[in-house]
Structure formats: C-alpha cells, structure tokens
C-alpha cells in the first residue's frame, strides 16, 4: 500500500518537527490543564456534581485544545507554503490528507492523556473506573475530530479569518460526535455503569468515524484545490 506508506511519511515528518520544537504539544497540554483548573473553580466540586459534569469537561477540553492544535499544525504548513509542496507531490492527495489527520490525532490523543488524569486528580472525577472502554471512546472521538478537522483546516489555510472560522465550521458539524463522546463517558462513570448505552454510543461513534472518513477522503481533493 503505497498510499499508506506515503501517508506515514507525511505524518512522520510532522511528528519529527513536533518532537523537535514541542511547541504544539506543550501549549495544547498547558491549555487543557488550565481548563481543568478553571473547571475546578467554576463548578461545584461535590461528588455528585463532578460525576455529572466530568464527561462534558473532558470533551470540551478535547474540543478546545484540539482546535488550537489543529489550527497551529496547519499554520505550520502555511509558513513556507509547504502545503502547496505537499499537494504538488506525485502521491495521491489522499496520502497527504491521511498523513495530516494521523499526526493531528496523535497530538490530540496526547492532550487527552494529559487532561484525563488531571480531571481525576483535581476534581476526583471517577473516570478510571473502566479504563478500557474510556480509551476506546476517546480514540474514536479523536479520530472523528481529526478527520473532519483536517479537511477544513486544510481548506481554510489561505483564508485570513481562518482562526475564527475553524470552530464556526467544525463545532456545528461535530456536535453529534462530542455529544456521543460525552454520553459514553457519562454511561461509563455512572454507578453501575450502563454498558448498554456505552455500546450504543460506541457503535454510533464507529459509524460516524467511518462515514466521515469516507466522505473526507472523497471530498478532500476537490476542497483543497482552489
């Protein structure tokens, strides 16, 4: 599969740059951590309230920090017009898209890995009662976010007001994804865990990811070509 190999090449390039500067990773993680601290002061901290609010807190943090990282990751491709160079390469444009989506997904996952334990630590949110399904649902959510996010961040690359337009475009489209993520997390930490609901929403997320992955693959080229 040469498409996957080329996608891996693009993703590896992004990770290499990120590992060298660590700019996106540090700032995103800092921002997500900050959000958790703000939550701790903004919301009641008793056990019942936290149990009700923690899933939403987690997914809002992922959405906000993820959008910042997404915008910055594509800004990097704009600096020396390298996005143009990538799209000009004689590889399927699908490979460029997948490469970017993979590297974004890894960054957002890293952020989730920072803010989930912080929610547990600062707020006592019982997020780790079922770690396996939680990891799965975060993974599915992050994949959907990165896929749709990469398409629109790439098309907005040359638009002056891209920073405000990115959330304007993404959030309405991603509401089902974030709601599904929140619902799953909610079902997981309720006592006892409602695995019927968990399974429903995990299927929902899986189908959502699959449909939007296909749609993104199908539209990416015609959307990035001016």
């Amino acid at each position: 599969m040469s498409v996957l190999r080329q996608a891996a090449r693009v993703a590896w390039k992004d990770l290499r740059i990120e590992l060298r500067s660590r700019e996106i990773l540090y700032t995103m993680a800092f921002f997500a951590g900050l959000l958790v601290v703000v939550y701790a002061f903004a919301f009641p901290r008793d056990e019942r309230a936290v149990r009700g609010a923690a899933p939403g807190m987690l997914w809002v943090a992922i959405a906000f920090a993820g959008t910042i990282g997404l915008g910055r990751a594509f800004d990097r491709e704009r600096e020396n017009d390298t996005m143009r160079a990538l799209l000009l390469a004689p590889v399927p444009r699908l490979a460029v898209f997948l490469g970017k989506a993979i590297s974004i997904a890894l960054l957002v996952l890293a952020v989730a890995a920072v803010c989930t334990p912080l929610l547990v630590l600062f707020l006592g949110a019982p997020l780790f009662t079922h770690p396996g399904p939680l990891v799965l649902v975060i993974l599915l959510g992050v994949i959907g976010f990165s896929v749709v996010g990469s398409v629109f961040a790439a098309t907005l690359l040359k638009v002056r007001s891209r920073d405000v337009l990115l959330p304007v475009i993404l959030y309405p489209l991603l509401i089902p994804l974030f709601v599904a993520g929140t619902k799953t997390t909610m079902a997981l930490i309720s006592t006892p865990a409602d695995f019927h609901a968990v399974w429903y929403w995990i299927q929902f997320l899986g189908i959502y990811d699959a449909v939007f992955l296909v749609l993104s693959v199908w539209t990416f080229e015609s959307l990035v070509i001016e």
Binding site: V159, I169, L215
Partner: peptide, 16 residues
C-alpha cells in the same frame, strides 16, 4: 467572511 474561496469552503460545510 472566508474571502475569495468562500464558495468552495461553504460547499464543503453544506455537504458535511
């Protein structure tokens, strides 16, 4: 607000 490429980006949003 998306300037000269607004038609293309908006089309993407409509499809999604």
């Amino acid at each position: 607000f998306a300037g000269p490429s607004a038609d293309r980006i908006a089309a993407g949003m409509a499809i999604f």
